[in-house]
Design a binder for these strands. Structure first.
Length: 414
RNA sequence: GCGGGUGUAGCUCAGUUGGUUAGAGCGCCAGGUUGUGGUCCUGGAUGUCGUCGGUUCGAAUCCGAUCACUCGCCCCA
């Protein structure tokens, strides 16, 4: 409450950070546009039920991570912990149900009350896509391939791997869940306390427990793949063949499950080993039940979300692409003329910085440090001759250019 | 929510068994004869030693609490 510190788990993005942040967003959106996706911007808060009804009453996100509050009208409002529920709500309330198939891209802040770690914050940012209304496996293939294209555009293709699994349709999942619960219940004495809890709330989660004892039990457990009914099995098969056909490598991970209730069929995660415990960098799946569950017309969907901060951590430095011209006035008389020159050039489309203080040496040094391409030196001498000394800071070449023809002469710096 | 680690100048870090004016490198600022950068040389500024409290003649150094960061668990992007 006090002090000038930011709230725990939140961060300022200073220019060097925000440049990296925007580079991730823009690269992703550029790829998404090539796939025919348009951007949707939904509110960052919704009525609490939008999340509690869709994410499931047992998920951690709903039970302990939501930023909820009552507004002045007494409504329970929640800062969005993820993007899909809001997009689904907009789809239903915005009358988009007539526009299928629908391809949507989104980006923006998400909020979860968690213990911060590297790659995990309380306010973080996601980019994501949703493809609504395409039932066939080609939707899954395209959406996953697009995820890989985004990572490739960021130069991260070789640092991630794609893990793939199928949760099957509702019927397959229910059958498997029953078999798994029976198997685990018979071995309760060998399960960790965490997994006993999972057994009650979300038994599939036991599959990816990191506890050694649990792993031993899970190693013998029935496999989801063996419980897929014929349509589910064929669907998964088609997704795999399609990915192979378009050159997207993957590894099957039968223990890959989802925390959120609305997923079915395809589940996938692009992971890296470079971020410690937060290795998942882009993840998603098919959610055929979601829209119907929210009260809309039965509509299938598939999508993914990626953490911008996690991607940024992998990205390293992103250079500033803008290299300005530096106008350097020398002497009182030149100050006003230099300012006029700055404005004239900016209005002509150049990026221009003014060198304010110090002797010429200092001003050139500063111009150099800000990455300026050229310095425009304007002193009394130049003023008298109606020229400006243009010094190329990369080559060191310098020549006088008539003020009247400056825009033309500077064309190569535009 | 649970367990471990860390917290000293803008940044990266030193700081001996508690002892008196708290250091380095980088960065920043200013100079190296009046208007020429990216190299070099010289000089300079900057710290509530995270915060609060305790032990002590004396604490950046020991103890406690608190905050933040960090690693793992939980969960997830």
């Amino acid at each position: 409450m006090s002090s000038l510190q930011p709230v725990r788990g939140t961060h300022d993005l200073l220019p060097d950070d925000s440049r990296r942040h925007r580079a991730v967003e823009e690269a992703a959106f550029a790829v998404a546009r090539r796939y025919g996706f348009g951007e949707i911007i939904t509110p960052i808060f919704e009525f609490t039920e939008v999340f509690s009804r869709t994410l499931g009453d047992t998920s951690d996100v709903v039970t302990k991570e939501m930023y909820s509050f009552q507004d002045r009208g007494g409504e329970s409002i929640t800062l969005r912990p993820e993007g899909t529920a809001g997009v689904a709500r907009a789809f239903i309330s915005g009358g988009l149900t007539q526009n299928l198939p629908l391809k949507l891209f989104y980006r923006g802040p998400m909020f979860r009350y968690e213990r911060p770690q590297k790659g995990r914050q309380r306010q973080f940012h996601q980019i994501g896509v949703e493809l609504l209304g395409v039932e066939g496996p080609q939707a899954d293939i395209e959406v996953i391939a697009m995820g890989l294209d985004v990572l490739d555009a960021l130069g991260l293709k070789d640092r991630v791997r794609l893990e793939l699994n199928s949760l099957g349709d509702a019927e397959s999942r229910a059958t498997y869940r029953q078999a798994l619960v029976a198997y685990l219940s018979a071995r309760k004495d060998r399960l960790s306390p965490d997994s006993l809890e999972r057994l009650e709330r979300n038994p599939l989660r036991v599959l990816d427990s990191k506890d050694e004892g649990d792993k031993a039990v899970v190693a013998e457990a029935p496999l989801l793949g063996d419980y897929l009914n014929e349509p589910s099995r064929a669907f998964f098969q088609a997704v795999q063949e399609g990915l192979t056909a378009v050159g997207v490598p993957f590894i099957l991970n039968p223990k890959l499950v989802r925390g959120l209730d609305y997923y079915s069929h395809t589940a996938f995660e692009f992971t890296t080993t470079a971020l410690g415990a937060q290795g998942t960098v882009l993840a998603g799946g098919r959610y055929d039940g979601l829209i119907g569950q929210m009260g809309g017309p039965a509509t299938c969907g598939i999508g993914w979300a990626a953490g911008v901060e996690r991607l940024s951590l992998l990205l390293g430095e992103v250079p500033d692409p803008t290299r300005p011209l530096a106008v350097i006035p020398m002497g009182e008389a030149a100050a006003t003329e230099a300012l006029k020159l700055c404005m004239r050039l900016r209005r002509a489309g150049f990026a221009v910085e003014m060198g304010y203080s110090g002797n010429l040496k200092k001003r050139l040094a500063r111009a150099n440090k800000m990455g300026a391409r050229a310095a425009l030196i304007l002193g009394e001498d130049e003023l008298a001759r109606a020229v400006v000394a243009v010094r190329d800071l990369d080559s060191g070449e310098q020549q006088d250019v008539a003020l009247s023809t400056l825009e033309n002469a500077l064309g190569c710096y535009r």
